[in-house]
Amino acid sequence: MTIINRTTDRGPAPGDGHPLPWLVPAIAILAAFYAVPVLDVLRLAFSDASLLAPASRYSTDAIGGVLADPALPVVLGTTLVFTLANVAALQLAGLCIALVIARGERRGLRGMAAFRTLVLAAWVVPGIANGLVWQMLFDEAPYGTLNSLLGYVGLGPVAWLSDPQMAMASAVIANLWQGTAFSMIVFYAARRAIDPTLYEVAELDAATPWQMFRYITLPLMRRLIAVNTVLVTVQTLNTFDSILALTGGGPGRATEVLALFTFNTVFYNLDLAGGSVLAVLLFAIGMGCALLVHYVIGRERPAA
């Protein structure tokens, strides 16, 4: 039997009974850069602060005002549609591309790295630029890019941005184009982590590609799919820059999501307190999604 002496020449290890000093830097950084701003937003939500004057009193007036705003249900509905459509599409597109790349690499196809880079290129485009690029593509003028292409094959024109329903679809397409890369990276990493022996055994058992996906790939990627769902949901909830550039939230409020509504409340309305209430709401929704998935993952975790 070997007795392990945990005290080494370098001094005590972090777990030797005094972990706090080791955690202080991390706690301080988290507090300074994360908790303090969040707490300040929470404070502002209970204030009467505007961009013209600092908080002079604290009450629940701003919360009441925001919750009673008839526009809020409309905006929440728009946010729900935008988020659900994006999360579903982003997951599906990201998964498909990741599996295509993984399969291509397994078969030694050339150009897979270039393909992966091409998808990633969209990810580094700033949201505003993404919105402007798609605004040009969706331009409904007689010389608009997509409508002109559709015209060559006898289709269209499509009211990409002027019709409220199509404007939402266009906003989803623009966000999908940019955000797919993130899901693709997550799924690609997850797919690469699966032991290839499993697929080799499945092939020996004459499993079809669908069966391998259904009974090997999907179950083993399930937890990362759940994590990605949270990340993508939070990302989508926070999206406002590309919509701002693409439609500005219009026509009317057709594409005004919660993040954009928050921006407008602060910078059009000059209502810092109201904007803070909306920011807290956005934070709560994001946190709720994260906790939900954490709970689901926790239930699935096998006993040690």
Binding site: Q135, F138, D139, E140, A141, A159, W160, L161, S162, D163, A167, T247, G248, G250, P251
Partner: peptide, 8 residues
């Protein structure tokens, strides 16, 4: 044209 609602 109806597209005026997309002109920004």
């Amino acid at each position: 044209p109806a597209r005026v609602t997309s002109i920004t």
